[in-house]
Design a protein around this nucleic acid. Sequence first.
DNA 1: TCTGGGGTCCTAGGACCC
DNA 2: TCTGGGGTCCTAGGACCC
Length: 417
Amino acid sequence: MESRVIMHVDANSAYLSWEAVNRLLHGDTLDLRTVPSVVGGDPLTRHGIVLAKSIPAKKFGIKTGETIWEAKAKCPELVIVPPDYSLYMRCSTAMGDILREYSPLVEQYSVDEYFLVYTGCQTLFGDPVEVAHRIKDRIREELGFSVNVGVSSNKLLAKMGSELQKPDRVHTLFPEEVPTKMWPLPVEELFAVGRATSKKLYDRRVQTIGELANSDPKWLELFLKSHGRLIWNYANGRDVSLVRINRHPVVKSMGNSTTLPFDIDNCREAYLVLLSLVETVASRIRAAGYCCQLVAVSIKDNEFLYRSHQRKLYDPADSTNLIHQTACELFDELWRGQPLRHLGVSAAELCSNEFLQMSLFNELNEKQRDLDKAIDSIRKKHGSLAVHRASFIRSGLKPMTGGTGEEVEYPVMSSLL
DNA sequence: TCTGGGGTCCTAGGACCC
DNA sequence: TCTGGGGTCCTAGGACCC
């Protein structure tokens, strides 16, 4: 069997680079990439975390995910810009369009990452490493931002390769290069080794990827279960997962959640927030032609304690009111009166809605579906704010919450490759 | 001036059935 | 009747990813 050639293409500091490019395009003279800067949420609405940082900001020790407040303390002259998700979608798509010129097998892994199967394309475009450089340079010249490209024979190594040194670089990480290029790295840099796993490994004196690779998988399984075997294989450069074309992505769940500007302390308001979340979730489900058979509600209180309840439905549902009804019942199970800062609704066990469309259900459901359908089409034509439920009037709450502004047309794929 | 939002997968325990 | 054990479904929670 011919060995595979896989590339992983990763936009460098994606949100920040894209903001920088867009601002230059619109006449700004300052290139955000050249100064300490971050893309971040608004602390006044309690969304104040760093979503992306420039390389100069990184030199101040600023990290993604930390609070704007902490970042400012590290660098008082820090430039902070708000996120613009619809811009990021456009940049993401433009990147994918270039990649598809080099292979039909392209998987969008996240908003700023793609896998590309180059196996068999050599005869058309030539040596993989040369093509990786060409792709990288074309994206920089045509779209204005830099990427890293990792080249290897499986997805894991291609991805690890693209992370090696940034920005604007191509790296190979073939299996024979694993001991020299990957094994010296600290274990937390391995894909699928997060905070909890790296702590357990450090507690047991496993500090580098090489030490993990050369430890006994049976021993790893004692304290990491099946995850131990997985990361042991990864550390040894082994991964058999396939690149999946996103044309027919299998979405497993759809959810929306929100951190509220102020704590919620009564169930009337909570029900309303749940409704605004369900409006978004249910319309996404319907737009995709799905029904859900499971509804989940999550809460986070003012002490950051997180809990969730879920319930399987007797009949698959896609109606806003039905899902909201279930969500409120789940909320009642969960809530013990503590002030809440965050609410979430998720719909899972998705199935096709064809069965429902056959109208085997009672008249009430029929009317409910017609109503949802009518509302969806008005919103599609005139915008999501064109029609909303009267209960939101003077509530101070948004009638639809969640999402990124635009309908996101790609899935966020599995955490495992 | 604290700490986002979108996902997937795995595990453990209880219920229930045979 | 004195004690088992498989299999499946459901639920809660945790870990990981971008």
